[in-house]
């Protein structure tokens, strides 16, 4: 079976949904997270391509000084991170211990028809993350991601997981939720 982002997120849902605060990326990734397991602790970023990692970083920084701070997982993509590369240097210098960037790398702009990104060529985002100053960087493949995410959730970060999967997505519908509802539900779930 082809192991795509959908299969990955389905494998990861039992360990991360409702257990961590999740910021999910624009387009198909958010639709897939919603389809697999909706939760008030999921923030569906429906626009602002490139900013999933930044929103999660601001969240994690704001919560890290609390007792037993919640883990924040930004689900991002190769195309999106390439659009906001400065984020890696900001995470490298200001990323808190409760922050995980789950960078699902399928080498394609999936929501727009699987045009190839540069990671399907010569570009190595894990190498760029390390060079940006992030110490805990992991490259995983398919089913191997789950154990690494579990380990990252139990140890101090910031962590970056570059999870390699195949391109492609199931056909899903847009999330039937008002942005104000997504916002307020998420804010209440944090408390």
């Amino acid at each position: 079976m082809t192991y795509r982002r959908y299969e990955l997120l389905k494998d990861l849902a039992p360990i991360m949904v409702d257990k961590a605060l999740i910021v999910s990326n624009i387009g198909f990734p958010s639709q897939e997270v919603y389809d697999i397991q909706d939760s008030p602790k999921n923030f569906y970023m429906l626009g602002s391509m490139g900013l999933s990692s930044s929103i999660g970083l601001g969240l994690a920084q704001s919560l890290v000084n609390e007792d037993d701070p919640q883990t924040v997982i930004s689900i991002d993509g190769d195309g999106s991170v390439l659009m906001n590369l400065g984020t890696l240097s900001t995470i490298g210098n200001y990323g808190p211990k409760n922050y995980i960037l789950l960078l699902v790398d399928n080498g394609a702009y999936g929501s727009t028809g699987d045009q190839p990104t540069h990671t399907s060529g010569r570009t190595d985002l894990a190498g760029m993350a390390r060079a940006a100053g992030i110490e805990s960087v992991h490259v995983t493949h398919n089913e191997g991601t789950k154990a690494v995410l579990e380990q990252c959730m139990q140890t101090d970060g910031p962590h970056v997981i570059v999870a390699k999967v195949a391109p492609g997505s199931p056909k899903l519908k847009p999330i039937p939720m008002d942005p104000g509802y997504i916002r307020d539900r998420f804010k209440l779930a944090i408390k």
Binding site: G50, S54, I55, G58, L59, Q61, N84, T87, S89, T90
Partner: peptide, 17 residues
């Protein structure tokens, strides 16, 4: 590094109170 990133950080900070 860039203003959009800052807007994203501010969004996350606001969601966290």
């Amino acid at each position: 590094a860039r203003e959009e990133e800052g807007l994203g950080l501010c969004a996350g900070a606001y969601l966290a109170g």
